[in-house]
Design a protein around this nucleic acid. Structure first.
Lengths: 208, 208
DNA sequence: CGTATCCGAAACTCAGCCGTTTCGGATATA
DNA sequence: TATATCCGAAACGGCTGAGTTTCGGATACG
């Protein structure tokens, strides 16, 4: 038994020769997300991802045990991609903060995340780890920003203290998702601002 | 050419023997929607539908040319299932109308439609006829009700005439879809009412 | 510079599902 | 009742895609 374990350990950590090149893992994961967003989980093939990443299919299977694990890993690596929690806008008003947070990069990142989610929709209930990955990498980061901006507005007395922060923080995301998935239109800057001005701000008692 | 067309016509309308039994078509379409909502389009198989409908797979292919056509037909037949446009509530207030419209049957129907849409998400962009079927059978009927109730409120001077009826009519549907698909919670009566009271009514200047 | 390991390409196995066909039994029509 | 057609069950063919293996060439480590 000891012999077998030792041999396996040696296979896992080879001492000689070329080491595995992990520098291109991000490219592979990005390619996986692209294909996922474009074609959906079930119609996405490993060959598509390999081809787009200019890699061999065997290379992918040397790194990930299955298609599902590759996708879960790809989703997880979106976690801190499009949002820099460090320097959020602080304009002094809720509207100012929300609008300042709508940058081209932010719009593009949100659109990508929605399309990835759409591609995972059918799969998300059958694959257990996937729901968690989506929640912590796609949903939560976005909600966290809005919660923070709303809480600031409460702290400075701009909006009522009993505002339903949780529901309000999901309002823009919900409308953007519906517009993208159902209406098949882009959730562009002017749409997002209109949601803020016509729905979110009135809901907390601020008439723009 | 005429001979061929005539022969084909005769095949389509046989004169003798047993006639095709179409009484069980609704059961088959309902079974298709059930499987669709539970497993999604790509993982749904014709055998699943046939088994659930207690029919043979061949029977399904005698009626629909392909899996895609079966699904499109099933979606299309949801059109006037859960909504009776004839006798909508008319309580005299916007809130009264909206709340009165939330009946157990209506909640269940909405939940089912959201799950069907989730099952079609990945497919909806590649299959051309599907987007139209979803739009006219699932999305539009719901939106139409809300548009009507909002328009009534405008006509009686309860809410501003320049209210964005279009955006407001999609608010509840958007929040319900997000809650069901992303948060994986049920859009039950109390959730729907809280969306109305905390978001929709304040947005039109009505504080409940 | 030698060599162990990695890489990409391609061929391969295997399972699952679409769509077709066959067949014995049931059933509505004449 | 006689028969043409339908029905459900089951087997079949063909294709697609997951996952594996092989192989020549490239490459980093000693």
């Amino acid at each position: 038994m000891g012999h077998i374990d030792l041999a396996a350990a040696e296979v896992d950590t080879p001492k000689l020769g070329r080491k595995r090149d992990h520098t291109r893992d991000p490219e592979i994961l990005t390619a996986a997300l692209d294909v996922l967003a474009e074609t959906g989980y079930d119609r996405m093939t490993i060959d598509m991802v390999a081809t787009r990443a200019k890699a061999g299919k065997a290379t992918l299977y040397r790194r990930w045990a299955s298609k599902a694990e590759l996708v879960i890993d790809a989703v997880a690596c979106m976690k801190n991609a499009g949002i820099d929690m460090a320097n959020l806008p602080d304009t002094g008003t809720l509207r100012g903060d929300l609008v300042a947070n709508i940058k081209p990069h932010s719009i593009q990142d949100g659109d990508r995340k929605i399309h990835v989610m759409a591609g995972l929709m059918s799969m998300i209930s059958s694959e257990p780890g996937l729901a968690d990955a989506v929640q912590s990498a796609i949903v939560e980061p976005r909600a966290k920003v809005n919660r923070l901006l709303l809480q600031r507005a409460i702290d400075r007395g701009e909006i009522p203290a009993d505002s339903d922060v949780e529901k309000l923080s999901l309002l823009v995301a919900s409308m953007a998702m519906y517009r993208t998935m159902v209406q098949r239109k882009t959730a562009n800057r002017e749409f997002l601002i209109s949601v803020i001005d016509e729905l979110l701000l009135p809901a907390v008692g601020l008439r723009p």
